[in-house]
Each structure stands twice: as structure tokens, then as C-alpha cells.
Amino acid sequence: MNRSVKDTASEFPAVAGRLNAVPSQSPGYWTLVRKRLMRDPVTLIAAAVLVLIVLSAIFAPLLAPYDPFMGKITQRMKPVGFAGHLLGTDETGRDMLSRLLYGGRLSLTSGIVPVAIALAVGGFLGISAGFFGGPVNSVIMRVTDIFYAFPSILLAIAICGMLGTGLFNTLVSLTLVFIPPIIRISESVTTQVRSLDFVEAARASGARPFALMRYQVLPNVLAPILVYATSLVSLAIILAAGLSFLGLGVSAPAAEWGLMLNSLRQMIYIDPLLAALPGVLIFLTSMCFNLISDGLRSAMDVRLKL
């Protein structure tokens, strides 16, 4: 089934316009991509900031000055810059800096893991649907249509309401939410690639399906799918935080930015700066992923070779 323009656009923020499937194995392609990226200061800065955030989350146990889960109740709600607590303390006297560092672990996990799993599952199903066409395509795509009938946040909330709170359930629900759009994109791109001349030629010359998939199709579809997936990470982070905000996501006493945002919400009239910190980090991280996704897209887009 030939997918129309509509299917490649999406409610998911960063997919702008259609994804073009074009031969990307031409020699020097990746060199070119790298070159373009090196000339794109915005993407480079975003990447640098993101690397910093990721590293600080990974090395949180080394960097954090305090235990993020144990505070001193007498030291609660100290302002940013308070002696001994660089970013203040939260409502039970836990060090904010430590909690924000540790919080990055869960927030990044809930951003990256669901997208990665959805990419593997959805990519596999979507590429299969696009590659084999016919009944395989019909079965996969019709089931996808059903899931696709739910706006993402609605589906995430419904699934989380059903499974209950906790990190694991958040990851499951977000993964389920992202599988359908990835299937759609993958199927669409694969269908386009399959009908391209050089693939047709390979098929005509008697290439076996596996070889065709491995050498002709995969290399050409992975890039656009990957670019799309990076843009979903930002959405995943915001959705995960939103779930925690509604009390459906990661549950206390875990350190997670959305949860911290929620529990500090009442402090907004008392210490706005403190209450804003987790929100700023969610925004910053999500922005970095969006900028990187944009940068990758324009760097990989061969149309710019004109």
C-alpha cells in the first residue's frame, strides 16, 4: 500500500514534512554528513550540553555531594546558594543538586529507553510491512491503525492508569505509545525505497530477499527512521514528566525531574527559583534532543546536495 504524505507527517513534534528515502550509501555520504554537522554550531552546542547532562547523570554517584534519598528535615527548603547546598534543599531536606543529578538518570531513561525499544520493535515491524507488502503489510498496518487512533498522551495516560504507577510501567506505556508512529514511518520509508530504481534493478537481477533487505533496503531506511526517533526522545521526556505530574508516573521517593516538579509545585509561591529547577532541566534536555534531531535531519538530507 502506497502511503500518502499524511502518514509521514505526525502529531509528534519534530517530524517536519516528508522523509525522503534516497540512496545513502554513495561513497563519502557519512563524511559529508559529518562535515555538515561540524559546520552547524547550534547542533554542536546542543550536543555538548546534552553530553554534559548525560555524563552528569551517569556519574551522579561520584558528583552528588549528598545522598539524594536521605535528607535532614531540619534543613528543608533551603534556598539556592545556601551554604553546603549549592542548589538548596527540597521539601524533606534532601540536597537539590544531588537529586537533580540522580533525577537525570530516571528522566533520561524514561526518554531514551522507550524510544529505543519502540525503535527496535516498531522499526522491525514497519520495515517488514514495507518490504514484504501484501498481507503482512495489511495485518501489521491495520493493527497499527487501531493504536494510532489514540492521541499519544491519551494512550500513555490510559495505559499508565491501567498498569499503575512506577518507573517500569511508565516505560511500558511510553514504549507502547511510540511503537505505532515508528511502524508508520518505517513502513512508509521502506515502501518508498523498495520502489526506487536501484532496488528494482537489484531485484530484477535476482537478488534474494534477505540480501535485498540487508544491502539495498536497510542502509537506506535506517537514517530517516533514526532521525525521527531522536525527535521522539524529547517528547518521551516531556510525557514521562507529565505522567509524574499527574501522579501516574514514577512514584516517590524516587528522584525524577517530573516527580520533583510535581512535589515542588506547591513551593512556587515560597521559593519560585527552587520550584523551577526541575522544569528548567526538563526543558533544556528536551530542547537539546530537538535541536540535535533537527541538525541530523538537515545534515543527512541529501536534497541539500543539489
Binding site: S4, F150, P151, I153
Partner: peptide, 24 residues
């Protein structure tokens, strides 16, 4: 227009389904 229309349709759906947080 077609691409724009598609995304606007989906976004309108998102406004309805996704209003849960803002309405809260």
C-alpha cells in the same frame, strides 16, 4: 498545504486528547 493540513489535523486531535494536563 497537504503536509500542513495533515499535521494540523493531528494537532487538533492532540489538543482534545492532550488537554488533560492543562485542564488539570
Amino acid at each position: 498545504a497537504p503536509a500542513t493540513l495533515a499535521v494540523m489535523g493531528l494537532q487538533f486531535g492532540y489538543l482534545l486528547g492532550g488537554s488533560i494536563l492543562v485542564e488539570t
